[in-house]
């Protein structure tokens, strides 16, 4: 990638401006006395488009420093962790979300040490339980959920420790696998009636399908 960083920046500005003009095309421009919702967006986007073009031009003419290489592994680990936290929080509960974020985010560490990471998971978990009890309750749990969460942590810890002995971490596929495993633990643990508030119909539907097709049979199997 030997393209000047100014060119990248300029292109970004231009793309953003064009996106704004395109989406905002039907916003009313209005009159000076009664400006419409589209007045500022349009003025702004045209200005941004011009500046973006200028920045790109400078980049082409000046041939300054090229953009540094991106640290994709670290980027994916951190953003993954935040996204997982967002996805897991309202569906699986705070404990699962915290664990997931710490474990996934931890794979971005320069020299991953699994024992440390699991300890961190525990620490984060206890911190939430004891320092923010109000918060934990707000997310929709009670003492039962706390016990469950604790056991879930233990399970994950054991799983990871046994797992980590053989294969090194850091590969994206494994990260995903870990996330899925974590998800399954928590879904099974948080079956019906344990303070689930589904975010939207889509999630609820997905949940119902999963429940009827997978979890109910499994439960029946175990009870039998």
């Amino acid at each position: 990638m030997n393209v000047d960083k100014d060119i990248w920046a300029g292109l970004f500005f231009m793309v953003l401006a064009m996106l704004g003009l395109w989406i905002g095309a039907d916003y009313a421009f209005g009159t000076p006395a009664r400006m419409g919702a589209g007045f500022l967006p349009k003025v702004l986007c045209w200005a941004l488009l011009g500046l973006g073009a200028l920045v790109t031009l400078i980049g082409v003419v000046k041939r300054g420093e090229p953009m540094e290489a991106w640290a994709w592994g670290e980027l994916v680990a951190i953003l993954d962790a935040v996204l997982l936290f967002a996805a897991a929080l309202e569906v699986l509960g705070l404990e699962a979300a915290i664990l997931g974020a710490v474990l996934i985010g931890g794979t971005g560490a320069p020299s991953p040490n699994h024992f440390e990471r699991v300890c961190l998971g525990f620490a984060a978990f206890f911190l939430t339980l004891f320092l923010l009890p109000g918060f934990a309750v707000k997310i929709g749990g009670g003492s039962i959920q706390m016990v469950i969460g604790l056991l879930a942590v233990a399970a994950c810890a054991a799983a990871i420790l046994s797992h980590a002995r053989r294969v090194p971490f850091g590969v994206l596929a494994e990260r995903v696998l870990l996330g899925v495993g974590l998800g399954i633990v928590c879904i099974i643990v948080f079956v019906d009636g344990l303070g689930l508030t589904m975010k939207s119909v889509i999630v609820t539907d997905a949940w119902n399908v999963l429940k009827d097709a997978v979890i109910r049979p499994v439960i029946r199997l175990i009870i039998r």
Binding site: I148, A152, S162, V185, I188, V189, I222, I223
Partner: peptide, 15 residues
């Protein structure tokens, strides 16, 4: 191991 852990944890809570 992972799968075993899952079921070990899940069983009591399902009940």
């Amino acid at each position: 191991v992972l799968r075993l852990c899952l079921f070990a944890v899940a069983a009591p809570f399902v009940v």
